[in-house]
Design a protein around this nucleic acid. Structure first.
Lengths: 214, 214
DNA sequence: AGTTGAGTTAAACGTTCGTTTAAATATACC
DNA sequence: GGTATATTTAAACGAACGTTTAACTCAACT
């Protein structure tokens, strides 16, 4: 019964570090210390294993994001005021850097989430997108409310810029292999979040000299 | 003798659309209408074929970027003035969206470049990074000169945010598969570049309330 | 005309992949 | 304690991968 957990943990680490296709069933089961056939026995297939890993690790993060975004929307509607841009950004960004606990193997966990934002592979992207969709839709809605002077096109693209920057930040921060690049820039998550929020607030909120009209 | 070209064109399309590992030698040669063994005969290996495609398509783009960045640095040093942030950004971003010609199959070409910014696979990343390194190094140097009030750490991370946003923008703009997402936001490249420059200028140039000190 | 060498071809190579099978072992229940 | 049920095991499966081989085509040159 902790066989399933051993497999889930090993798969999380390997998927995060090497990607889905590069992590073979044999590598996963060997790392978990269990027999090769047990993944198919307990999960059905390799893809179902990925789905299980994502559901286990990503769902809590997205639930927190969704709840915080909903709170912002509710408060904004009750008080009849524009939602605050930095507040929206913080609700969207912060949970991705850890839900509070999870000290153990946090880098792998974060790296897995980072893949959710940059993964070009269709098999993986399909699963990850399905889990993030509700939070993403509400996020876009809130951004439109917070930036009423911008066209829908402009909000859409600035939102895409944010996603790109966020994904890059996560992967740079947690991926082994970038160690040399960021050797002199070791940055704790709180600082990185602040920099991201500051960057995105300034970039998204800018209204002068913008392209497109409303 | 145009066998090599047929292979290069087919490989560019497949690598861009499906990624390196997902594009099999058989799919490439079949798409090119040549025999399976000819890739190994003309290029040596699949990885050498990727290297050839990257060299052929990415090198001109990076040469333009590097030259424009060097011009900015030279002028800045001669006149003894800070380089202009939007000008730097434009020099870094614009060539990536096309070097002028290349109407034919531009989406595939851009998509291939987009992979250079987001590709998690190590085999691919290694090759792409080698080609982009000179431009990237000079870019970081110029950013530090343009933002003298910011710490090295802050410039480094804002630069990473830019790369993330740029990579996301390229892939969203040229990748088939995102069609549904951006259905109502068809955007031409010039407009997208302007939005990117505007976004990044505001985000990177912001100095109030920043984290870290100099 | 005959020879050389680059280009091309079909077939096979060895490896790795995810999955399946059938037997063996452990666990739970009466 | 014996039987049913769940789990684990070693082995094999068929498919796909990148690469290699050896025979063949064909244009160029003496």
């Amino acid at each position: 019964m902790d066989t399933k957990e051993e497999i889930l943990n090993a798969a999380e680490v390997l998927f995060a570090r090497s990607g889905y296709h590069a992590s073979s069933m044999r590598a996963i089961t060997e790392s978990a210390g269990v027999n090769l056939a047990l993944v198919n026995y307990h999960f059905g297939s390799k893809e179902a294993l990925l789905e299980a890993v994502v559901a286990l690790r990503l769902r809590p993060v997205n639930e927190v994001r969704l709840k915080r975004l909903q709170e912002i929307r509710n408060r904004s509607e009750e008080l009849n005021i524009k939602p605050d841009l930095p507040e929206i950004l913080r609700a969207y960004i912060e949970p991705v850097f850890g839900t509070g606990e999870s000290e153990r193997g946090w880098a792998d966990f974060a790296n897995l989430i980072g893949r959710a934002f940059t993964e070009p592979d269709e098999t993986v992207q399909k699963i990850l997108l399905r889990h993030m969709k509700p939070a993403n839709q509400l996020m876009l809605e809130l951004l439109r409310a917070a930036l009423p002077d911008l066209s829908g096109q402009e909000v859409f693209w600035r939102y895409q810029f944010l996603i790109g920057a966020l994904g890059r930040a996560i992967r740079m921060n947690s991926s082994p292999g970038y160690e040399r690049l960021k050797k002199n820039f070791e940055t704790d998550s709180e600082t990185l979040i602040e920099m991201l929020v500051s960057f995105a607030s300034a970039g998204m909120g800018k209204t002068e000299g913008r392209v497109g009209r409303r």
